[in-house]
Amino acid sequence: MTEIFAKIKNEYKNILSQSENVVDDFDVNNIDEIKFSPFYTPDDDAWFQIKSFSKEKYFIEQCTDNFSSASINQIDNDDYSDISCIIISQDSDNSTQKKYFQRITKKCFVNKTVLWLSGDPEVVKNKKQIEINRKSDAVYLADTDTLYFKKIATIKEIFPGIEEIDFCA
């Protein structure tokens, strides 16, 4: 089951559950893992990694594999504009869950006028929607307890305190 949570102000709330995957599965074997350094920008297939992530003080409990979505409230209609990040919790092939994080800013709220193509075409305006990126800002794998990310500036709202991470110069 795929679940989506959102961070609204300082609280996480449940958005929805569905059986289908939302984003492409993150395959650890297809990427380059590099240790974090602020002086380096990773390529397309390279991701920074933090091992033993659950021991760090900026670890959040929503990352744990047996996090119960019954522990958080359901999102209200008024909350959507305050979303600061979303977590997509998806089953991976070996039946553990992978958590995909995406930072949500005003840019992610898409408000286009589009032509819906179907047997009954119509012009749709002002549909309230948030774009879900194919490539997430961070991915956490519970079975190896490793966090993968691209830019530390993007994820510091998701994991407060992560900007103080030690790095090798």
Binding site: M1, E3, N14, L16, S17, N66, F67, S68, A70
Partner: peptide, 8 residues
């Protein structure tokens, strides 16, 4: 109704 999970 919307779904939720209780794991532990």
């Amino acid at each position: 109704l919307s779904q939720a999970k209780i794991n532990k």
